[in-house]
Design a protein around this nucleic acid. Structure first.
Lengths: 348, 348
DNA sequence: CTGAAAGCGCTTACAG
DNA sequence: CTGAAAGCGCTTACAG
């Protein structure tokens, strides 16, 4: 006869169903080894009592929070590329009955690891099982995360300045092959003068650029790259780069943009200057984001499956959680050339 | 000699410091009744062992999650007004060592309560202590929230179609007084023909409108309101309303906009049409958001302290949590007329 | 297949 | 002021 509507526990259910605590717990967790009839009895009691398990108690018992944290460092949340990755993370996590909390952090790439501020949720123990790192991941940040003793997986293309071999799990897309495919495609259509546009102070563009240089030299093509450092808006950067390209003599026959936003900027300026795409100039992008379809005609680009990256991040992380001793894994997602209408063939 | 680096618990600290468990717990929670010397001893052990309390265990013991949920229903997150409220919530919550999780929900205002979907975090028990409701809060949504058995507080100006008396805690600003202040101000400067602009299908504008009608009739002023239903962009709505106002004969001497976005739209069109502000037309807004300073000259407007609303929401909620039996509270925040430069005096 | 028991890491009366 | 104990609501070996 208490006033407070006492919370209904697993014990109430057990009593109602005439079974032991353990049995209720087993059906709750969809474990095997419960006979059909008892299972039904328990399920009925659960429904009758409107029982809902208490999350903290379960987490305590399991020694798992079933919660992971997506950490985006030194970046805007709204960047569509990462937003898509996050979506993939969220969806996959839900399938595995995990929550994901998003936190943004800003840090100084020159700070000592211990000086990097930690979001509140990471300052307590037990709230977060694992981390997904994206944004700008420098070495000091990695070390800071390691100091937490929480397993993590990194979005590999965002890992900066650590060389190629890493001691941690990562999932990444293969920029090199993407570039190769794009250039091969242009080459097969007769293009011999292909410009590259991307600000190589960012490592993701640097990687593309390296691949561009390799293949361009292997094939003995003209090399022409607009790579200058240009912080800020990528569309504007594309516009500016387009004007640079247009001053070249002879004019290249194609431009390969480091990402679709840049491609969009190139397209805008070309259009304004009366350069017809693809008749006068072929154009290829990278990422396959929304911009690819804003361009008219639609943009040929290298697709990166962003949601899949998120998906693989969660999977890799969950595997790591169940096998802490496993050696570091590097999951590489292939890219895919999506041929649309901004590339035409050249007749020699 | 276990491999896994066993988690350090309160028990380890107690042993190290040579005290009981309870004592460690007490210093952890900054409770009184611990002598200075033991306290220091415990603190030293904590530091030496790098002890961090386990969040779920603490929450279990306390029977409190120390986590509240900000629910924005049927709205865009990025609406700057609510974003500011959220900021206030977050900041105040942090002061009280609480986490706040943000969730957006979309629901049908005609749905039965039981049909309204619940975010995952509310589908488990014990994760959330209390709710803060904002957005579009219809009766069915309130009932859905009540069915959860979790205390909540609502942002009262967003409560729709439930009359004036409510059975739950709410925090709101006093739109009526804000309108009165604005009209009085215009009146004192000689204005006798003041138009009101706001889409009264939204209750927050309806409330302003009612106040406008009351005061305008009390003072025997001309009544002229552009209130037509107009979904979508509020700046555009303001532009359209400006063109309506300009067709009036005689022209009103002032326009009172339902919010600053609308005022911004009015201002834009007035400017385009060569109507000088405040010489030819005075203009007053509501909310005091960023727009107020984008207008040139800066906008006279009614300030609503959005962060404070968030602040009061948390405080009210926390009070409710500690005194569940308390009768519903209605916290009203006053508004403040901010006089800038868009109002001039009229000489008769 | 199933029950009784121990354990998770805290907090909070209850005695001293 | 402080310690020993009970309790929070689950899970998970351990025996049957």
């Amino acid at each position: 006869m208490k006033k407070a509507p006492r919370i209904v526990t697993i014990e109430d259910v057990a009593r109602e169903a005439g079974v032991g605590l353990g049995t209720v717990s087993r059906v709750l967790n969809h474990q095997a080894h419960v006979s059909h009839s008892t299972q039904n009895r328990v399920l009925a009691s659960i429904r009758r009592l409107k029982f809902v398990p208490h999350s903290h108690a379960r987490r305590m018992g399991r020694r798992r929070a079933e919660m992971v944290c997506f950490i985006l460092s030194n970046r805007e949340f709204l960047h569509p590329f990462h937003a898509r990755i996050f979506q993939g993370v969220e969806r996959c996590a839900r399938e595995w009955k995990h929550h994901v909390v998003f936190v943004g952090v800003q840090y100084d790439r020159d700070a000592r690891p211990s000086q990097i501020p930690l979001p509140a949720i990471l300052q307590e123990r037990g709230s977060i099982d694992g981390l997904i790192l994206a944004g700008m991941i420098y070495g000091n940040f990695i070390r800071r995360m390691e100091s937490l003793g929480i397993p993590f997986v990194a979005f590999g293309n965002n890992v900066l300045g650590l060389g190629r071999r890493h001691e941690f799990d990562e999932v990444l897309y293969d920029a090199r092959v993407g570039v190769q495919d794009a250039i091969e495609h242009l080459y097969s259509l007769g293009h011999r003068s292909i410009a590259y546009v991307g600000d190589i102070s960012f490592p993701w563009f640097q990687e593309e650029y390296d691949a561009y240089i390799d293949i361009t030299q292997t094939k003995n093509l003209r090399t022409l790259a607009v790579t200058s450092l240009q912080s800020g808006d990528e569309v504007k950067y594309g516009e500016w780069a387009a004007s640079v390209v247009l001053r070249e003599k002879p004019l290249p026959t194609a431009v390969f943009a480091g990402n679709d936003q840049i491609a969009y900027g190139l397209w805008r300026l070309f259009k304004r200057r009366g350069v017809r795409i693809p008749n006068d100039m072929s154009l290829v992008g990278f990422d396959d984001t929304e911009e690819a379809l804003l361009i008219d005609p639609p943009l040929t680009t290298v697709r990166v499956d962003k949601e899949k990256i998120g998906y693989l991040c969660i999977q890799t992380l969950l595997e790591r959680l169940s096998r802490p001793g496993r050696s570091p894994r590097r999951v590489v997602l292939p890219t895919k050339l999506v041929i649309r209408e901004t590339v035409s063939s050249i007749s020699h």
